[in-house]
């Protein structure tokens, strides 16, 4: 099968010739398409190198970083019983979302493993079933927030490429909540739709009906009157300074 594929295409896919290729992750295969060493062409499969799959250290600095945050302060409590994942609302919908495993990876500083789950790591819906049932009161729901913090710190590129939507939405929330002290739901909705490139949907029948309804019953105008709490700027500044001066990964400028 693999041979046939090669015949069709002169340049083989990375690691294509490896028997049981499906057992090896892409990142673990090093293979230069074009490589000449001492005048000898060793392109493609001639220079294939498979990285060790064996973990060779526990990095506890990661654990300490999580433990120092408000949301992650109970990371040391987790004994991996799986009650959180068993309770989870999201896991049945996305099997790869596994709070138990994420907490364990953070405990052991297993970034290599954690990296594989960046795309699902933000899926927690914050329903707190895990925290309700966790026998050690680890508070896994908030541990998922800590997970977000560490991912942001250690995988900025992946956050940019895989979690852009999530980051953009967070930014909108931040601007509104911290910036204005109140949340304008209509603006939140429209700017989120814009950021996620779904402006068109706003013109669809369902959205249009809702907007029309709210304009008709007057709610749309109450949104305009939402306003801002008096003296909010002093709170905003005080919180901003606090966040800037934190020496944990919660630091807003980290």
């Amino acid at each position: 099968m693999a041979l046939k594929k090669q015949e069709q295409r002169p340049v083989a896919e990375k690691g294509e010739h490896i028997i049981a290729r499906h057992l090896i992750e892409d990142d673990s295969i090093k293979e230069e398409k074009n490589l000449v060493i001492d005048g000898v062409d060793v392109s493609g499969r001639w220079n294939t190198f498979i990285l060790s799959r064996v973990d060779s250290e526990f990095d506890r600095s990661f654990f300490r970083e999580v433990k120092d945050t408000v949301v992650g302060s109970r990371i040391n409590r987790c004994w991996q019983c799986g009650m959180c994942t068993a309770s989870c609302t999201v896991t049945p919908l996305y099997r790869r979302f596994n709070p138990r495993a994420f907490i364990y990876m953070m405990q052991l500083g297993n970034l290599k493993e954690l990296k594989k789950y960046i795309d699902v790591a933000w899926r927690c819906v914050g329903c707190y079933k895990c925290s309700q049932r966790c026998p050690k009161q680890v508070n896994p729901a908030e541990m998922m927030e800590a997970l977000g913090l560490v991912i942001k710190k250690y995988f900025p590129e992946e956050v940019q490429s895989k979690l852009k939507v999530d980051e953009d939405v967070k930014k909108i929330y931040d601007d509104m909540i911290l910036g204005h002290g109140r949340l304008d739901l209509a603006k939140l909705h429209t700017s989120a739709m814009q950021k996620t490139g779904r402006t068109k949907e706003l013109l669809g029948k369902i959205e249009r009906d809702a907007i029309f309804k709210m304009a008709k019953d007057g709610r749309a105008f109450s949104i305009l009157r939402l306003g801002k709490p008096h003296n909010w700027n002093s709170s905003k500044e005080a919180m901003g300074n606090y966040l800037k001066n934190l020496n944990t990964i919660e630091n807003s400028e980290a």
Partner: peptide, 25 residues
Amino acid sequence: IPDYNCCGIGEMKSKGAASMYMPLR
């Protein structure tokens, strides 16, 4: 209450004590 501010609606949780300041104000 006059001058109320947003509670943070869960989006502030990873911001340490600022997430507590919001409701407690």
